[in-house]
Design a protein around this nucleic acid. Structure first.
Length: 526
RNA sequence: UGGGGUAUGGGGUAAUUGGCAGCCCAGCGGAUUCUGGUUCCGUUAGUCUAGGUUCGAGUCCUAGUACCCCAACCA
C-alpha cells in the first residue's frame, strides 16, 4: 500500500483485505460506454478507479461497456484510450464487454435451464406497464411460466436471427412484487439487428447493462466494482445474477460513490453531444467544452485535474464543486511551470516623449521568475507602447497604484516612467498617454533607490503580435510541452475568438512576440 | 405513491469510530515582491431540526425536515 488515503471505499477494501475476502487481491476497472468523449466528470471516476487499485498494489482495467450497438463508435474508443493516457494512467489491460458476448450467452442458457430466465413475447410498452410503479406492485407476464425447454428453444432462435427487433426479450425471473423496481423481471437481452462496432453482424442479440456489467466484472476477476450513485438500486440485481452463476473468481462487490459536478459546467453527454451536433462548438475538443480534450486545449495540465479529483475526495454525498476550485489547481500547477509573457488585452497607447527618435532598446527578461532555469527572452522597447487600458486612470480612485498623471511606475523589466499628460479625441476619450522615462533606470531599478508602487506590463507597438493567436496556441503548448495546436484562432469560429479575448483575463504577465502563458480564466461556461 | 441514498462554515471535504471540530477553495487583515501574481503570517464562519442516552455526542437512540436516485428492450 502506497498511500493511506481515507475514504469509505478504501475502508471497505481494507476490511476485505483484513478478512481475506479476495485473498488480498484488489482489481478495479474503469468502464465507459464508447458513445462520447470523456469529460471532467469521468476524470473523477478514472482517478478513483485507478488510485484505489494503485493504493493497494492492485490493478485497474479499462473496459468498454459496448453493449448498445446503436450509439457506440470506434472513434470514441480511440479518444477514450488516449485521454486516459493523457491523465497519466495506464490500464493493466483493455477489455470490451463485447469480448464476453459468447460467455454471457452461455450463462444466459444456464439461467434459463434453472428456470431463472424466460422469453417474453410482449412489446416494450406492455412490459413497462406491467412493471407497476412506486408503491404499486407489478403483474406477471403471461409468458413467465414457460418451460425451460421452450425458453431455451426460443432463446436459440432469437440468437439465430429468426425474430425481428423488439419482438421478444429474455427476462430474469425474479419478483414482480419486489419493492425495488430493478428486480421486477429485468430485461437481459433485446433483439437488435444492428452492426456492432467490433462484432459486426455476428450478433442480433445484445445484453443490457444489468446483464453485462456484473458478469463482465466477474469474468475479468474484478474485486471491487466502483460506480456512481445512480446504480445503487441496481446492486441487489448485480448480486442476484452473480449468486446464480458459476463464477471463475470470487464474487465482485459493487461500491457506489457520488459523481463529480462542477458549477457553470455541463457534464451530460447528451447535452455535450448536441453542442457538437448543432455546431455551437467546433467539436468535442473545442476549448470551451468540459471534455478532457477541451480542457487540454484550454491549457489545463493533466496533473492539475488529477490533483483536484483526488483532493475533492470520494463520498456518497451529491455535491457540486466550484469551478474556481478547479481553477485554483490549474493555477497552482501552471504557476510553477508556465513561462510568463507580457500581454495587453485592451490597448491604450503610451508615447515616451523623451525617447530618442527611432531608437530600439532590447531587454533580457526571465521566462519564469518561479523557475530561473527556464531561461530568458529578449523584449524590444521603443518610444511607442501599448499598455492595458485598466492600468491608467486620469483620476485615480483610492488605492490605485498604477499610472496616472504625475505618478511614476515601472514598466516591467525596462524603465521607470512618469505620466506627464494625456491626449483626448473630440469625444473626450483618452486616446494616448504621454510619459517621460528616466534613462538612469534601465532594467527597472533606480540608482537612487527610490521605489514605485506599481510594475506594469507593456508592449512595443512596433513589435507586438496578435494576442488572440498567440494566447490560444501558447496555452495549449504550455500544457502540452513540445506540441503546438497547429491551428491558431483563425480556425476557430468568430464567437470563440471573442470569448478568448474577453475571458482570457490572463493573469498574464508579459508580452513579447508571440507568446502568452499564465492565465486565470479562459473558457466558456453555460 | 413504495424502496434506496445523503445531510459538517459561502462551496467542498476530514475527525484515531464516543474524547480539543481539522484541511482546501472563496472572503477579510497584514508582511514580502520588478506580475494588484506567487510566497508567508493572521483572521471571519460550521455539525439539518427537536428530544434522549452519556462525565462527554458530528459520531449512539427516537421522531421529524430537506435534497438526490429508481417505474428504457440506455448506461
Amino acid at each position: 500500500m502506497t498511500e493511506a488515503a481515507n475514504d469509505f471505499i478504501r475502508d471497505a477494501v481494507r476490511r476485505d483485505n483484513e478478512q481475506g475476502t479476495y485473498r488480498g487481491r484488489v482489481q478495479t476497472r474503469f468502464p465507459p460506454e464508447p458513445n462520447g468523449y470523456l469529460h471532467i466528470g469521468h476524470a473523477k471516476a478514472i482517478v478513483t478507479d485507478f488510485s484505489v487499485a494503485l493504493d493497494f498494489d492492485g490493478t485497474c482495467n479499462l473496459r468498454f461497456d459496448d453493449t448498445n450497438p446503436d450509439t457506440e463508435e470506434t472513434e470514441y474508443v480511440d479518444a477514450i484510450v488516449s485521454d486516459i493516457a493523457w491523465l497519466g494512467y495506464e490500464p493493466a489491460a483493455i477489455f470490451y464487454a463485447s469480448d464476453y458476448f459468447e460467455k454471457l450467452y452461455e450463462w444466459a442458457e444456464v439461467l434459463v435451464r434453472e428456470g431463472l430466465a424466460y422469453v417474453d413475447d410482449q412489446d416494450g410498452d406492455t412490459i413497462s406497464a406491467q412493471r407497476g410503479g412506486y408503491g404499486r406492485p407489478g403483474v406477471e407476464s403471461p409468458y413467465r411460466d414457460r418451460s425451460p425447454a421452450e425458453n431455451l428453444d426460443l432463446l436459440r432462435r432469437m440468437r439465430a436471427g429468426e425474430f425481428p427487433d423488439g419482438s421478444r426479450v429474455l427476462r430474469a425471473k425474479v419478483d414482480m412484487q419486489h419493492e425495488n423496481m430493478q428486480m421486477r423481471d429485468p430485461v437481459m437481452y433485446r433483439i437488435r439487428h444492428s452492426p456492432h462496432h467490433r462484432t459486426g453482424d455476428a450478433w442480433c442479440l445484445y445484453p443490457t447493462y444489468d446483464w453485462a456489467h456484473g458478469q463482465s466484472d466477474a469474468i475479468e476477476g474484478v474485486t471491487h466494482s466502483l460506480c456512481t450513485l445512480e446504480f445503487d438500486s441496481h446492486r441487489v440485481l448485480y448480486d442476484w445474477f452473480l449468486d446464480h452463476l458459476p463464477l471463475p473468481y470470487d464474487q465482485p462487490r459493487q461500491i457506489e460513490f457520488a459523481r463529480l459536478e462542477l458549477t457553470h459546467t455541463v457534464t451530460s453527454k447528451r447535452r455535450l453531444r448536441s453542442l457538437v451536433d448543432d455546431g455551437v462548438v467546433d467539436g468535442w475538443d473545442d476549448p470551451r467544452m468540459p471534455t478532457l480534450q477541451g480542457l487540454r486545449r484550454r491549457g489545463y495540465p493533466a496533473e492539475a485535474i488529477v490533483a483536484f479529483c483526488r483532493d475533492v475526495g470520494t463520498t456518497r454525498t451529491n455535491s457540486r464543486q466550484s469551478i474556481e476550485n478547479l481553477e485554483a489547481y490549474v493555477r497552482r500547477a501552471l504557476n510553477l511551470t508556465a513561462q510568463r509573457r507580457m500581454a495587453v488585452l485592451r490597448p491604450l497607447k503610451v508615447v515616451v516623449t523623451n525617447w530618442p527618435e527611432g531608437q530600439v532598446d532590447t531587454f533580457e527578461v526571465a521566462n519564469n521568475p518561479e523557475d530561473p532555469s527556464d531561461g530568458v527572452r529578449q523584449v524590444a522597447f521603443t518610444g511607442e507602447l501599448w499598455i492595458e487600458a485598466d492600468d491608467f486612470a486620469e483620476v485615480p480612485p483610492p488605492k490605485f497604484f498604477r499610472l496616472s498623471p504625475g505618478v511614476e511606475v515601472r514598466l516591467r523589466g525596462a524603465y521607470l516612467v512618469r505620466c506627464t499628460g494625456v491626449v483626448k479625441d473630440e469625444a473626450g476619450e483618452i486616446v494616448q498617454v504621454d510619459v517621460t522615462y528616466d534613462p538612469e533606470t534601465r532594467g527597472g531599478s533606480a540608482p537612487d533607490g527610490r521605489k514605485v508602487r506599481s510594475t506594469m506590463h507593456w508592449v512595443s507597438a512596433a513589435h507586438a503580435v496578435d494576442l488572440e493567436v498567440a494566447l490560444y496556441d501558447r496555452l495549449f503548448s504550455a500544457a502540452n510541452p513540445g506540441e503546438r495546436t497547429g491551428e491558431p484562432l483563425d480556425d476557430l469560429n468568430p464567437d470563440s475568438r471573442e470569448l478568448v479575448a474577453a475571458k482570457g483575463e490572463a493573469a498574464l504577465a508579459a508580452t513579447a512576440p508571440g507568446e502568452v502563458v499564465q492565465f486565470e480564466r479562459l473558457g466558456y461556461f453555460a
